[in-house]
Design a protein around this nucleic acid. Structure first.
Lengths: 157, 157
DNA sequence: GCCATAAAGGATACTGGTGTCTTTAATGCT
DNA sequence: AGCATTAAAGACACCAGTATCCTTTATGGC
């Protein structure tokens, strides 16, 4: 597994909020979790962590919820990885050897290093905003489990 | 985490056996686990799984242990991954979307697919034998936690 | 056949990620 | 000020990977 389950929830959550941003500023956990088919309370904890790291902004009380920060869309995907999974896998050896580095490499070091550099490069050069697509319905379909109609319907309630 | 902890144990175990093969045919779990600094009973279970898949051969009783199969060194690393971790991460979406594929891709599909193909390529094109190095002492150092001297010493007991 | 040795197999505990629920704190509305 | 709403925070359950121990099975040497 490249990333944790939480990372998937986190990124999809941010993208969902970004998607709804043009209509409403504050989006509630209930709606995000419901639309994405993610456990309600678990989603809440994940979004809280992102808010704590200023990738999201939260507001309590009626009409509160979560919203993007000014710079959220320009942040690289690696930021989400760092917040949710941490970056240890990029720095540590796949064979878990303590002393693995370019001078004293583990047997897989060279082969894996190349892949890790590449993956890190993708995550650094791709921003959250880069992932957004123009077709809203198509985009929702790619991150949500609920039907598009029921999601768009919920917006009026 | 690209691979599980077990995968690291497994690969290092196979390499250790390969390394000792020129002197002795059958290597015991006790020695492998001791040399590599891996939990004894856990290592046993991992090696058993590899034996079941014919990546290793096992023999019970006195002077028994594990040894390489005829074709072990020519097997690609992906074989070890398949036995220990399974290949599901290569086939499934990082955002865990059920319906993610090239026709209906998740937002990260294109970027990740490239990395996954590359990683899989490395694991397919690199054999276990490819990882072996000529300098035995250097090689042991790269997969073991115990001192080289104490390992070489144990061979005589 | 008996004994010692080593893997096989099963039972159990630990740990971190995942998932659920309840209580507390903050905020907007009346 | 009081109430309703929403996130924050903490407690707890669950599960899969990890780790440990014990019993059983196979095998070689005597």
């Amino acid at each position: 597994m490249l990333f944790s389950k939480s990372f998937g929830y986190a990124l999809r959550g941010v993208l969902y909020i970004a998607l709804m941003q043009d209509e409403r500023k504050w989006i509630q956990v209930d709606e995000v979790a419901g639309s994405l088919g993610v456990p309600r309370y678990f989603m809440g904890k994940i979004m809280k962590r992102m808010a704590k790291e200023h990738l999201l902004v939260s507001s309590k009380g009626p009409y509160g919820g979560f919203t993007l920060n000014e710079d959220t869309l320009s942040k690289p995907l690696l930021e989400v990885v760092a917040i949710i999974d941490g970056l240890s896998s990029f720095h540590s050896c796949v064979l878990r050897m303590q002393e693995c580095n370019s001078e004293n490499p583990c047997p897989m070091h060279a082969q894996i290093e190349e892949v890790k550099v590449r993956l890190k490069g993708v995550l650094e050069s791709t921003t959250i905003g880069d992932l957004l697509r123009t077709d809203k319905k198509e985009f929702i379909k790619s991150i949500a489990t609920q039907s598009i109609d029921s999601i768009l319907l919920n917006q009026h309630t």
